[in-house]
Nucleic acid binder design. Structure first.
Lengths: 236, 236
DNA sequence: TGATCTTTTGTACGATAGTACAAATCACAT
DNA sequence: ATGTGATTTGTACTATCGTACAAAAGATCA
């Protein structure tokens, strides 16, 4: 179905704007923001450096547009999956479903924009590590709502665990998720080839299984820091 | 005790070389490698840009020296703690001790070089995310041994779990560890002030507790991918 | 004190960064 | 066919990057 484009969106190449976005996304996600130049992006997209300025004004504007492009659809998908997960009756099954609803959209690989995808998640991981200012603002105002929704859903499945613990553990989940996308080869290397860190299905199952167990761990009582033993004190 | 310095280590300021290393460590860990200029580092250390070149030749050389300075003592400390942990008789307790031996040196804050410290760990997290070439080489040749030692120790405590699963779960542990050091404020924010993401003791306890439970999760049978339900398929 | 070596300073160079802008080119309506 | 607005190209400007290097300053020992 070839629709007739209006004069507002004509272009010489099929869609140069999209090509630039895709190239920038890939390069930012693998090399970080500062290591990638506008010229690098233009070259990877088969475009002229000036085109980047024309479409996105600044380099920050380009990053901003990448976030705008993905955040909406991704959070929508997560909301749908979360809603479905919340309808699961059995508490144990519901917990797993909720975790899966959080993890799956972050992994589903990214030829389609709608799904969010591993590439965008990796991008977010790298921006978070670099302390990127643009990313920080967007995340705080866009992702915190989603995070709270998931935390609440998980808390509903585990009423006896303090909310504080849930927050910590979902923080760990996000860290593990990010790291799995940033350094998948490390898994292959450490497992001596027995596991494939780049296989999303495998990563998802492993992550879900481990995370569900982590959430189900006994509550960490603030009132009971009297640990049985302290192995960690050999020197001091 | 003021020892007489030889001609090989005299300097105008107490120790400008160390000041540069400390400044670079801090700046790299918070802003990434490429976002920080040699001039930034020199200014933060109260030194002249030329001094950086004099002591470390190149910017890569400076990063390399930071790694060299920390890797040895940190892995040594981990080895000691691991050896102590392995002597714990009870399997459950031993698992926790091993995890703690892995986590604690990564968090212990870093006024002393020997301890490794949170700052250096945060640096490693950022370099890993940026895909830094210098860091990648060092990590593969320095940290993999340590990682294998811990994986083996954990496997000994959990003989019924396949090694592949152990690798995945320790990978998740490292990701959670990194992320906790990179974005501690997110914990405070999401818990609405009830938890302090910047409190190392708290982070360690939460991480150890969650991780031990994750390791103890039932094995993920490769032969049984027939899951009971698939909540994750609402669209496709 | 003066010779010698180490360290710091100051400055400069080439490369590359982000961005601006005029000219060229294209798609489409008339 | 031609005019018009959207897009792409080519190029240039300024700032800053990593690094080099000579001169200045400090420390050490005869």
């Amino acid at each position: 179905m070839v629709r007739k484009p209006t004069s507002k969106e004509t272009a010489r190449k099929p869609n140069m704007r999209e090509a630039i976005l895709a190239a920038a996304e890939e390069l930012f996600a693998t090399n970080g923001f500062n290591a990638v130049s506008v010229r690098d992006i233009a070259q990877a997209a088969g475009a002229n450096p000036g085109s980047v300025t024309y479409h996105f004004k600044t380099k920050d504007g380009l990053l901003l547009e990448i976030y705008r492009r993905h955040c909406g659809p991704m959070n929508l998908r997560r909301s749908e999956l979360l809603a479905a997960a919340k309808r699961v009756r059995d508490l144990q099954d519901r917990l797993e479903a909720v975790v899966r609803a959080y993890v799956v959209p972050a992994f589903t690989s990214g030829s389609d924009l709608a799904g969010g995808g591993a590439r965008f998640t990796r991008l977010r991981a790298v921006m978070s590590a670099e302390g990127n200012e643009v990313a920080r603002k967007i995340i705080a105002q866009t992702f915190d709502d989603t995070s709270h929704a998931f935390i609440d859903a998980i808390h509903d499945s585990l009423p006896h665990i303090p909310r504080t613990d849930i927050v910590w553990r979902s923080h760990f989940l996000l860290g593990a998720l990010y790291y799995s996308l940033v350094t998948p080869d490390r898994v292959s290397r450490l497992s001596r080839g027995e596991a494939d860190g780049n296989d999303p299905a495998n990563a998802i199952e492993q992550l879900v299984q481990a995370t569900v167990a982590a959430f189900q761990a006994p509550a960490l009582d603030q009132a009971a820091p009297a640990r049985r033993r302290t192995v960690a004190s050999s020197k001091t």
